[in-house]
């Protein structure tokens, strides 16, 4: 099962390798890992997408908490969250195909961020499913390059009644 973890860490050299080393050293999976600063200059925020059964996830969370540089770990799987990922795609856009691609881009609420003679760069954000669907639709035009941020997530303010806040 896929899990999204929110991990607040102290912003110091080596902290990323402590976290990533923990995953590789213990044979845990990382699907995506996003690291970015927070408003507090002393901390950074990581969003880690991983998968495993409940026992493995429990170990991952406990092992992360055990790292001295980790401030806080939240497993979002028991909560209603907003998940987003941003992707840049360079897609082939020869004469004739361009119109169709722009229509698709419009439907997926993408932005055209760069125009070349024979390709476009599109910026799209959404959850994983949307990004995968969009990529699938672009295949026939020739997807030349993809850069993705990995998932970021935030807990929704209003939780459905059956879901307890962590």
């Amino acid at each position: 099962m896929r899990h999204v973890l929110s991990v607040l860490v102290e912003n110091e050299p080596g902290v990323l390798s402590r976290v990533s080393g923990l995953f590789s050293g213990r044979g845990f999976n990382i699907e995506s890992l996003n690291v970015a600063p927070t408003p507090d200059p002393e901390t950074s925020h990581m969003t880690i997408t991983t998968f495993g059964d409940d026992q493995i996830l429990e170990q991952i969370v406990k092992q992360l908490r055990k790292l001295i540089t980790v401030v806080k770990v939240i497993d979002f799987s028991a909560q209603a969250t907003v998940e987003r990922e941003m992707m840049l795609v360079r897609v082939g856009a020869e004469e004739g195909a361009r119109e169709e691609i722009l229509r698709l881009a419009d439907i997926f609420r993408c932005k055209v961020v760069d125009v070349g003679h024979s390709d476009l760069i599109l910026e799209v954000s959404g959850d994983q499913e949307k990004l995968s669907a969009f990529l699938a639709l672009l295949q026939k035009y020739g997807v030349r390059e993809v850069a993705r941020t990995g998932t970021v997530a935030m807990r929704r303010s209003l939780q459905p009644e059956h879901k307890e806040p962590a």
């Binding site: 080596g14 402590r18 080393g21």
Partner: peptide, 14 residues
């Protein structure tokens, strides 16, 4: 040595 000992120390510092 920090990189080398990261997985086998409780913590390490430079």
């Amino acid at each position: 040595i920090l990189g080398i000992t990261r997985p086998c120390t409780k913590h390490n510092y430079m």
